[in-house]
């Protein structure tokens, strides 16, 4: 086998669900050499105070991000589409269950 290089492992991003039913939120990163170890390391680092119910780990290099210099062209066009937001609509008082 070829010589193994000494490293601190790969970088993984950690997403935690703090309560069943809630969305997973990015909590931070962790180092590990493989996925089984990554999820254990994430558990030991980020849920020391019982913060977790569910957890994902994702190799950091698998995450696709936009460049911040692009952010205006990327996000601003949807700023004027207020009709996507429920508060846009004027509805009669007393309407229920909508």
């Amino acid at each position: 086998m070829s010589e193994v290089k000494d490293t601190q492992g790969q970088l993984w991003e950690v997403f935690i669900q703090t309560k069943k039913g809630l969305p997973f939120k990015h909590f931070g990163s962790v180092h590990a050499y493989d996925k089984e170890m990554a999820i254990q390391n994430a558990r030991d680092l980020y849920t020391r105070r019982g913060e977790g119910r569910g957890m994902w780990v994702v190799p950091a290099d698998a995450i696709v991000a936009i460049d911040s210099s692009d952010d205006e062209s990327f996000f601003d066009p949807s700023n004027d589409k207020v009709y996507r937001h429920p508060t846009f609509y004027e509805l009669p008082d007393g309407l229920k269950n909508m």
Binding site: Q8, G9, V30, H31, A32, Q40, N41, D44, L45, R48
Partner: peptide
């Protein structure tokens, strides 16, 4: 051997 494992062992 690395910081993550330090934390795990302490746990």
């Amino acid at each position: 051997p690395f910081l993550e494992e330090d934390i795990a062992q302490i746990n």
